[in-house]
Amino acid sequence: MKIRIKFRKWGVMKFIGHLDMMRHFQKAMRRADIDIKYSEGFSPHQIMSFAAPLGVGLTSDSEYFDIEVNSTMSSALAVAALNAVMVEGVEVVSYVQLPDTAKTAMSLVTAADYALSYKEGYESPYSAEEWKQIVEKEFLKQPAFTITKKTKKSEREVDLKTLVYDFYVEEQEGKPVFFLKVSTGSTDNLKPELVVSSIYERMGIPYHENAIQIHRLEVYTRDDSGNLLPLDALGTEII
């Protein structure tokens, strides 16, 4: 039976990297007595795969991973059992059953929502109102927004407008917050901070990566008609 689990990650847990989060959940499965399936062979491991690894320093409301189980308790009990053995800064929000034919979460990911906000002790160079205008003029109204993306191996031109599906600014607690819906996944993965830092660059002001907290809000897949769906929408609650 395939299960998709969604969790939140905040606070000091942002310093725990993806592989260590995996190890954390492997241990949590045993603590919570989830009847997870193991691979065959001499050193069996739990069948568990993450949707979209979250970088160190990022927080999230919607992290997903899939597991396979031999048997299961109800969604509500499983969520409670896991949360009873969690640490502060991680909370399991949903535990849903997937159709047996479901593809892995990782292969489904196509987009994600992010909020980028200024950390305590850091000020924005512009007010929220000013940012709204800048984003409108420099990005949204432009026919294209081309930057040079440098990787270890090559440099290539990328039009960020084709990878950004939504982009707006709001004021929260007196500071601007950037909201972005961007292309995510194994092809055309866009880090949201690249959009903001590129605008900083256009404006000719230095971008400090430590000034901004990146928070993932949701991770999406596309249904047959092209609509974006949160990853756990593909599963059903176990009663």
């Binding site: 847990m13 310093f15 725990i16 640490v87 502060e88 800064g89």
Partner: peptide
């Protein structure tokens, strides 16, 4: 950084 943040189970 996990060496310095505590919060372990």
């Amino acid at each position: 950084p996990a060496r310095y943040i505590g919060n372990e189970l």
